[in-house]
């Protein structure tokens, strides 16, 4: 309804065809109105805000073209990892912590370790028991996590923030869901629910500690390199190479699709060819969706 001045252009939104019309305003000072409508649907805007919307859409395109054609910047230094592998001492400390958790029936999986740190995934449902276990261990000093809430990071979808402790000189990093850094700055989101469930339904027993299974670990390491660091370091490449058999696991592709969506096919080809450095530019430049 309204007095039509002219039809400006017919546009398509998905499967719907819509007409952009210019109409007279309802009152004298209102100015002209723009209707975007078809037989079932109408959206109304005043002329000037509509012009602003169009300008915003044009600007959005220029932003998209820029980052799709420009490789994302990363620090060259991040390509070389300075972390040292775990030692006997660090493994002993890790075992001590895991044994305590097992004794108290806290579900956990070791995600990563090194000379000075261990990263453990704790089942969120066992959080209260986990905190009691730490008290029993004694000597655990809580530190603010550099990627935690205290440092301005947001944790979406009710994700419990990371916790960091120092125990006998080692850093103990605790996740409560497998995390993935979002491209939205300083934002963490949990990896897909299927992966979260798999991380506790499957395991890789190494000695006397439970590790994530090869598929979960592969996807976690991949997401860490792509989203958090923005580059594949030599350590990342070595870890992915060591977990190569996960690529042939039938569970891999469905879970990867939940993270990388339409890019999954291309990603699998790059991973099989071990073209890790090509993944991030290809991902940013991907427009087949």
């Amino acid at each position: 309804m309204g007095e039509l001045i002219r039809n400006i252009k017919e546009i398509q939104l998905g499967n719907e065809r819509l007409m952009v019309e210019e109409n007279e305003g309802y009152s004298k000072g209102q100015g002209k109105l723009i209707h975007i409508q078809n037989k079932s649907f109408r959206y109304l805007m005043r002329e000037k805000p509509f012009m602003q919307l169009l300008a915003t859409i044009l600007r959005a395109r220029s932003e998209m073209e820029y980052y799709k054609s420009t490789h994302p910047r990363f620090e060259e230094a991040k390509k070389v990892s300075t972390l040292k592998e775990s030692t006997e001492q660090s493994k002993k400390i890790c075992l001590e912590i895991c044994s305590r958790l097992e004794a108290d029936r806290v579900q956990y999986r070791v995600v990563d370790d090194g000379e000075a740190f261990v990263t453990i995934l704790i089942c969120n449902a066992d959080y209260t028991v986990f905190r009691k276990s730490l008290k029993k261990l004694g000597g655990m000093k809580r530190l603010p996590h550099v990627f935690g809430k205290e440092r301005g990071y947001a944790f979406l979808y009710q994700m419990r923030p990371f916790e960091l402790y120092r125990y006998k000189g080692m850093l103990v990093e605790c996740y409560f869901q497998l995390p993935c850094m979002s491209l939205t700055p300083k934002t963490w989101i949990p990896l897909d629910r299927a992966l979260q469930e798999r991380s506790f339904s499957q395991r890789d027993r190494r000695g006397e500690t439970d590790w994530l299974d090869h598929v979960s670990l592969y996807i976690y390491d991949l997401c860490w390199a792509v989203f958090q660091r923005g580059v594949f370091s030599d350590r990342d490449k070595a870890k992915l190479d060591s977990l190569e058999e996960a690529l042939s696991d039938p569970a891999m592709k469905p879970i990867l699709e939940k993270v990388f969506f339409g890019f999954t096919e291309q990603l699998l080809l790059l991973l099989e060819k071990k073209d890790y450095d090509g993944i991030i530019p290809a991902y940013y430049g991907f427009d087949g969706y």
Binding site: R46, P49, Q52, T56, R59, C180, L183, T184, F263, T264
Partner: peptide, 24 residues
């Protein structure tokens, strides 16, 4: 996880934003 905000603003009191969800 791969969401890039292309534009975000208020237009005539309406919250308008566009984001690129990679692969989706």
């Amino acid at each position: 996880a791969a969401v890039v905000k292309l534009q975000q603003k208020s237009i005539a009191g309406n919250s308008v934003w566009m984001d690129d969800n990679f692969g989706e």
